[in-house]
Design a protein around this nucleic acid. Structure first.
Length: 196
DNA sequence: AATATGCGCAACCGCTCCGTG
DNA sequence: ACACGGAGCGGTTGCGCATAT
């Protein structure tokens, strides 16, 4: 739509972040908090796009991140939530404290997809694979998009709370998922809530 | 020991949504 | 009511590391 770029690409670094850049970003956010990402790079003295700073902070530098392997509980929770919400990684991440949408997305694509396929379950529909297609991964994942509800319902307060429909407190086989959202950083421990 | 292949993670890109003037 | 700008999200890609040959 002819929108102006989010940043001056000619003057921004790309690729892997250096330690110094990380330190600058962390120091700035500690001092000023998460504010306007667009102006943050300049204010923090970083040659980076605001989007890039936000991503780096959320996915890597945030102090409350839980790094390391996913537990079986988390596995199951992700599978259940994906069955309910589709590829709404941010919503799923909201139920897993310390995990980021990017991390979950990667984990899904590299581990869980395979796991489900091995069990004969279609990772997109969560239905048993049938007949000839049983061993064939779906060729076009995008073709099987989550229900439209998932897409639109996340909009009112996508990154906050705001599912007023059945998603709000969905039940999966007796599991109360209570899908009202809280910031990923909040240690509300939904895993335990769900797993129990 | 060297090379090829596969896997996983981090980051980028483009699109959509929401708020504001 | 409309247009614009900012923020967030999901999909995709690239790079580095580990393992197999």
């Amino acid at each position: 739509m002819g929108r102006s770029p989010c940043c001056e690409k000619a003057h921004t670094n790309k690729g892997a972040w250096t330690k110094e850049e990380d330190q600058r970003l962390v120091a700035y956010i500690k001092a000023h908090g998460e504010g306007c990402w667009r102006s943050l790079p300049k204010a923090a003295g970083l040659q980076r796009c605001g989007k890039s700073c936000r991503l780096r902070w959320i996915n890597y530098l945030r102090p409350d991140l839980k790094r390391g392997n996913f537990t079986e509980e988390e596995d199951d929770l992700i599978i259940n939530l994906h069955g309910l919400l589709g590829n709404k990684w941010s919503l799923i991440a909201g139920r897993l404290p310390g995990r980021t949408d990017n991390e979950i997305k990667n984990y899904w694509n590299t581990h869980i997809k395979r796991k489900l396929l091995a069990r004969g379950i279609d990772p997109q529909t969560h239905h048993p694979l049938s007949g000839a297609a049983a061993n064939a991964p779906s060729s076009r994942p995008q073709d099987q998009r989550p229900p439209a509800a998932a897409r639109s319902s996340c909009s009112p307060q996508t990154s906050g709370a705001g599912h007023s429909s059945d998603e709000d407190s969905a039940h999966l086989g007796g599991i109360d998922l209570n899908l009202s959202l809280s910031p990923p950083s909040q240690p509300s421990s939904p895993v335990a809530a769900v797993a129990n």
